[in-house]
């Protein structure tokens, strides 16, 4: 196993964000956002559109530089962590051009580019990593297919396989549950548990509260800043969700946890 995983160290911090502020041309998108995520955790990032979810993501990936505050991935600065192939990004299906002429195999191989030399010529170890990743998401038989011919769930699995092939210890997933079929959802649930076992840290950006409850150990509620952060069962209160969504949660809360919350109120 890659030494950077340090899966034996239970308290090793994968993601540390300390009072991160981001502004676009004077408009504050995010202020004082702090977050610490240990190795082997699955965390949901929940907020409305425009609440700063994607800004926070972009800051964690180094796409935008915070105007204040500090971000560390595995203890490294973000650009150093990228060079170490520590961060994998799984995009929204909507953000990808699926008419692009690439096969499933080609896309998963892109996860290896950062570990190759300048010519990006795959070695045997790269091919093995791709085969292994494709087998884990159950797409090996479709490896020669163009990505455009796949279903929504299969497309999502291709990009999960790319992140697996990259062997990143931190996975950032953008709306992973949208447009996904039931088999893919089950496969993702299993994969996430395996990732956690292996010491990966997964951060899931979503507005789908039911999935957060099913998948995530921790949750971060965000509205221009981190409103609440902690174990999902403790943070998912009506009061917190009201704060996050301005009194209008997107889904009526269902399930035993939420009804208890209503009773408490």
């Amino acid at each position: 196993m890659n030494p950077i995983f340090k899966s034996h160290e239970k308290d090793f911090m994968r993601i540390e964000a300390d009072q991160v502020c981001v502004d676009y041309n004077g408009t504050v998108a995010l202020y004082d956002a702090s977050l610490n995520l240990k190795a082997g955790s699955i965390c949901g990032l929940v907020g409305m559109n425009g609440a700063g979810k994607s800004t926070f993501f972009k800051a964690l990936m180094g796409f935008i530089r915070p105007s204040r505050g500090k971000i560390r991935i595995n203890g490294f600065k973000v650009n150093e962590a990228q060079k170490e192939q520590s961060v994998a990004y799984v995009p929204q299906n909507e953000g990808i051009d699926y008419s692009f002429p690439v096969s499933v195999w080609d896309v998963v191989m892109m996860g290896r580019y950062g570990s190759m030399n300048i010519f990006r010529i795959p070695r045997e170890s790269d091919r093995r990593a791709v085969v292994h990743a494709l087998e884990r998401v159950d797409l090996y038989d479709l490896r020669q297919r163009p990505v455009g011919s796949l279903s929504g769930g299969q497309r999502k699995r291709v990009f999960l396989a790319r992140a697996i092939a990259q062997r990143a210890s931190v996975l950032l997933l953008d709306e992973p549950f949208s447009g996904v079929d039931v088999p893919t959802e089950k496969l993702m649930a299993e994969l996430f548990l395996q990732f956690r076992q292996e010491g990966h840290t997964i951060l899931i950006s979503t507005h789908d509260l039911n999935h957060v409850r099913d998948f995530c150990d921790f949750v971060v509620l965000i509205n221009k800043t981190v409103l609440a952060y902690g174990e999902t069962s403790e943070v998912f209160t009506t009061e917190n969700l009201n704060k996050t969504f301005g009194g209008m949660p997107p889904n009526p809360l269902s399930g035993p946890q939420s009804s208890k919350d209503f009773v408490n109120e």
Partner: peptide, 14 residues
């Protein structure tokens, strides 16, 4: 890769 998925390219340090 840049044409297909520039975000991924950036996230692996390109």
């Amino acid at each position: 890769l840049y044409c297909f998925d520039a975000k991924h390219a950036r996230s692996i340090g390109i």
